[in-house]
């Protein structure tokens, strides 16, 4: 499956990577903000597009701060679960939530979707996805975990040497 920017050139998404762990997508929809908000946040409507053409079951939908969400895509006899928690829900303009795929547990992405009313019946979606895994890892390395680990290994070396 691929994006079809050619035949939708008027509304093609622009994609940029502000940092090596961030993906920013901007896209204009020919619909008022309330409609776009509803399509993105009403479970019956989400099921009609989120699965990219695959059957989608919205298993959990708690759009409040701290609430959970879980969608399961059914494709070719396989199931792919996606889930996370809401950090912010501000209708009709902003949703911040975490995103995790069952296939990559622990690789959490923080998604921020902002809807901007363009005032002419169109809406601009700005979606920023922040990959937290490497940032977390780098943070831990900088906080001296690496040094701590080396010390542990040195201690282990000593123990092993004394066991000879």
């Amino acid at each position: 499956m691929t994006t079809t920017t050619a035949h939708m050139s008027t509304n093609a998404a622009t994609l940029s990577t502000p940092s090596d762990r961030e993906i920013r997508v901007e896209r204009i929809f020919n619909a008022p903000r309330e409609r776009v908000w509803k399509a993105m946040n009403d479970p019956a409507l989400i099921a009609q597009w989120w699965g990219r053409g695959n059957k989608l079951v919205v298993e959990k939908h708690e759009p409040v701060r701290g609430g959970h969400w879980r969608y399961v895509e059914h494709a070719n006899g396989e199931q792919h679960g996606f889930e996370g928690r809401y950090a912010e829900v501000t209708p009709p303009e902003r949703v911040v939530r975490t995103f995790e795929w069952d296939g990559m547990p622990g690789h959490v992405i923080l998604e921020t979707a902002t809807l901007e009313d363009l005032g002419d019946g169109r809406t601009k979606l700005v979606s920023v996805s922040l990959f937290m895994t490497t940032a977390d890892r780098d943070g831990m390395l900088h906080s001296g975990m690496e040094g701590g680990m080396n010390e542990s290994y040195r201690a282990l070396d000593k123990v092993l040497a004394s066991m000879k």
Binding site: M1, M8, V36, A39, G51, T133, T134
Partner: peptide, 30 residues
């Protein structure tokens, strides 16, 4: 991890394409 990022990015774009199509298709319904 980079493979996952590439996959995620493709999914994201495909999803927003579908959302655009959905909004066009349901114009006037909602």
């Amino acid at each position: 991890e980079n493979e996952w990022i590439a996959k995620y990015q493709s999914m994201l774009e495909a999803r927003y394409d579908r959302l655009g199509e959905f909004l066009e298709r349901t114009r006037g319904e909602h």
